Computed example of a mutant assay.
Amino acid sequence: MTSLHIHVGLWTLLLLAFVISLILHRAGKPKGQKILHMVARLLYLLVLVSGLHLLGYVYHFQGVSPLIKGASGILVLIAMEMVLVRMEKGKSTAFGWIILIIALALVFYFGYAILGVK
């Protein structure tokens, strides 16, 4: 299995953990939501490490496009955490959602349209 497949698998699991955590919160199941939030935090780290590995191994930390994609990816992780934490505290999540949607669109655009699958 290549580094790219590992990275894609990890962020897929992260997106699932994020969505299920949102669903559990709306269903009023705080214990399950908190557990999945902690799983998401572990996945943030794994996605970050695998992404940095790809950035170094495949692109050698060179070029503007890979660096923009990497920065956008970090912004996705930050926005996900912001949405989950603010949701748990009962605060507005609108800003987090806006950042998440924009950053996620940039990641997919740079990852698939600009850089292509390697």
Rank of each mutant, 00 (worst) to 15 (best):
T2P: 12
T2Y: 07
T2N: 13
H5P: 01
H7F: 07
H7S: 05
G9Q: 04
L10Q: 00
L10P: 00
L10R: 01
W11I: 14
L13R: 00
L13H: 06
L14Y: 01
L15M: 15
L16K: 03
L16P: 02
L16W: 01
L16G: 02
A17Q: 06
F18C: 01
V19S: 11
I20F: 11
I20P: 08
S21G: 15
S21K: 08
I23T: 12
I23Q: 14
I23V: 14
L24H: 11
L24F: 11
H25Y: 14
R26G: 13
A27G: 08
G28N: 05
G28D: 06
G28Q: 07
Q33C: 08
Q33K: 09
I35K: 10
I35L: 08
L36E: 07
L36S: 04
L36V: 08
H37S: 10
H37L: 13
M38N: 11
M38R: 09
A40T: 12
L42W: 02
Y44G: 07
L45Y: 00
L46N: 09
L46T: 11
V47S: 03
V47E: 04
L48S: 05
L48R: 07
S50Q: 13
S50F: 00
S50N: 10
G51Q: 04
G51R: 05
L52S: 06
L52I: 03
H53D: 15
H53S: 14
G56P: 07
G56C: 08
G56W: 12
Y57F: 15
F61S: 09
F61G: 06
F61D: 00
Q62C: 08
Q62A: 12
Q62K: 13
V64M: 06
S65P: 11
P66Q: 05
L67N: 14
K69W: 03
K69D: 02
G70L: 09
S72N: 04
G73W: 11
I74E: 14
I74V: 14
L75N: 04
V76D: 00
I78E: 05
A79R: 02
M80E: 07
M80K: 06
E81C: 11
M82R: 07
M82G: 11
V83A: 04
L84Q: 05
V85Q: 11
V85W: 07
M87K: 14
E88D: 15
K89N: 11
G90T: 10
S92T: 06
S92M: 11
G96Y: 01
G96N: 01
I98R: 14
I98E: 09
I99G: 04
I99F: 11
L100M: 15
L100Y: 10
I102E: 02
A103V: 02
L104V: 15
A105M: 10
A105R: 00
L106H: 03
V107G: 02
V107K: 04
F108E: 02
F108K: 13
Y109I: 12
F110E: 05
F110C: 03
G111R: 06
G111T: 08
Y112T: 13
Y112S: 13
Y112R: 13
I114L: 10
I114W: 06
L115D: 06
L115V: 06
G116S: 12
V117I: 07
K118R: 09
